[in-house]
Simulated scan of single mutants.
Amino acid sequence: MESYLLTEQDRSTLQSKVTNKLREVILTGHFNMGDRLVQEEWADKLGVSRMPIREALVQLEKEGLVRIEPRRGAIVTPISVEDIKEIYQLRVLLEGEAVERALPYIEEEDIKELSRLDSMMRSLGNTEEDVEIYMRLNIEFHHILRRGCPWRRIHDMIDTLWKGIPPYTPSLLADHLEETHKEHGLMIEGIKQRDAKKLRKVIERHILRTRDNLIEVILEAEKETNRSGSKDF
């Protein structure tokens, strides 16, 4: 039986840890569509009270991973491989367009901030706390890349696509962060060169590579679950 019990160090950032644990088990295939995620059971599994479980479920509902129903509680609605393909293909189309249109509005201060964020991300290790910091920095990095785009609606659409999996992929793809560092460096280089086509190409390749890595992780987790023949925790 796999243990999900949190350590004392984990408890220092309890809410975030609980949310990450529940997100991870949903994304890696431990639940089927329509399964109930019972608060009392997961409080026992993680060694916490029900309060952080309830708060985590509120966040996971916003991400589309659970649905809270009266009298039934949290119903799992895991994101499928097809969902991943849809989200990331739309990101390619929209973010590629947005960063290309944002480039004329990116100023020297923005470039300095992107470089600072890039350096900070490269300096982080692979602990859970480091990965959480990385996720926040990565969100800010991508926001700066496109915030100068004058098209208001494209921002709304991209923000919708980011409400779910994209912000949390570093926690699932820690083995691929070196590739991400290289791609971030190429993005900054494209900006400095004022090469819109190069910047767009790097962004699109970055999104598609992340998509493929994420699908690989999900499929491998499904295989592991099938080999074990059980969803016991």
Results as ranks from 00 to 15, higher is better:
Val81Leu: 09
Val81Ser: 14
Asp83Tyr: 14
Asp83His: 15
Asp83Met: 12
Asp83Cys: 11
Asp83Lys: 13
Ile84Lys: 06
Ile84Thr: 14
Ile84Ser: 03
Ile84Val: 15
Ile84Leu: 08
Lys85His: 12
Lys85Tyr: 09
Lys85Ile: 14
Lys85Arg: 15
Lys85Asn: 10
Glu86Phe: 15
Ile87Arg: 02
Ile87Leu: 02
Ile87Gly: 02
Ile87Asp: 00
Ile87Asn: 05
Tyr88Asn: 01
Tyr88Val: 06
Gln89His: 15
Gln89Ala: 08
Gln89Ser: 11
Leu90Gln: 14
Leu90Tyr: 03
Leu90Thr: 13
Leu90Asp: 06
Leu90Phe: 05
Arg91Asp: 00
Arg91Asn: 03
Arg91Cys: 04
Arg91Thr: 11
Arg91Trp: 07
Val92Asn: 00
Leu93Lys: 09
Leu93Gly: 05
Leu93Arg: 08
Leu94His: 09
Leu94Pro: 11
Leu94Ile: 11
Leu94Trp: 04
Leu94Gln: 10
Glu95Gln: 12
Glu95Val: 13
Glu95Ala: 08
Glu95Tyr: 03
Gly96Ile: 09
Gly96Ala: 04
Gly96Cys: 03
Gly96Ser: 01
Gly96Lys: 00
Gly96Phe: 04
Glu97Ala: 14
Glu97Arg: 15
Glu97Lys: 14
Glu97Tyr: 14
Glu97Pro: 07
Ala98Glu: 10
Val99Arg: 04
Val99Glu: 00
Glu100Leu: 09
Glu100Trp: 07
Glu100Asn: 10
Glu100Cys: 13
Arg101Tyr: 01
Arg101Ser: 12
Arg101His: 05
Ala102His: 05
Ala102Pro: 02
Ala102Thr: 07
Ala102Asp: 07
Ala102Lys: 11
Ala102Met: 07
Ala102Gly: 06
Leu103Ser: 04
Pro104Gln: 09
Pro104Arg: 07
Tyr105Met: 08
Tyr105Trp: 01
Tyr105His: 04
Tyr105Ser: 09
Ile106Leu: 11
Ile106Pro: 05
Ile106Phe: 06
Glu107Cys: 10
Glu107Ile: 09
Glu107Asp: 09
Glu107Gln: 13
Glu107Pro: 00
Glu108Asp: 12
Glu108Ser: 12
Glu108Tyr: 01
Glu108Gly: 11
Glu109Pro: 03
Glu109Ser: 13
Glu109Phe: 00
Glu109His: 11
Glu109Met: 10
Asp110Thr: 08
Asp110His: 13
Asp110Gly: 13
Asp110Pro: 12
Asp110Phe: 08
Ile111Gln: 02
Ile111Arg: 04
Ile111Pro: 01
Ile111Cys: 06
Lys112Pro: 00
Lys112Thr: 08
Glu113Met: 11
Glu113Gln: 08
Glu113Ile: 03
Glu113Asn: 09
Leu114Ile: 00
Leu114Met: 03
Leu114His: 03
Ser115Cys: 10
Ser115Ile: 05
Arg116Lys: 07
Arg116Ile: 05
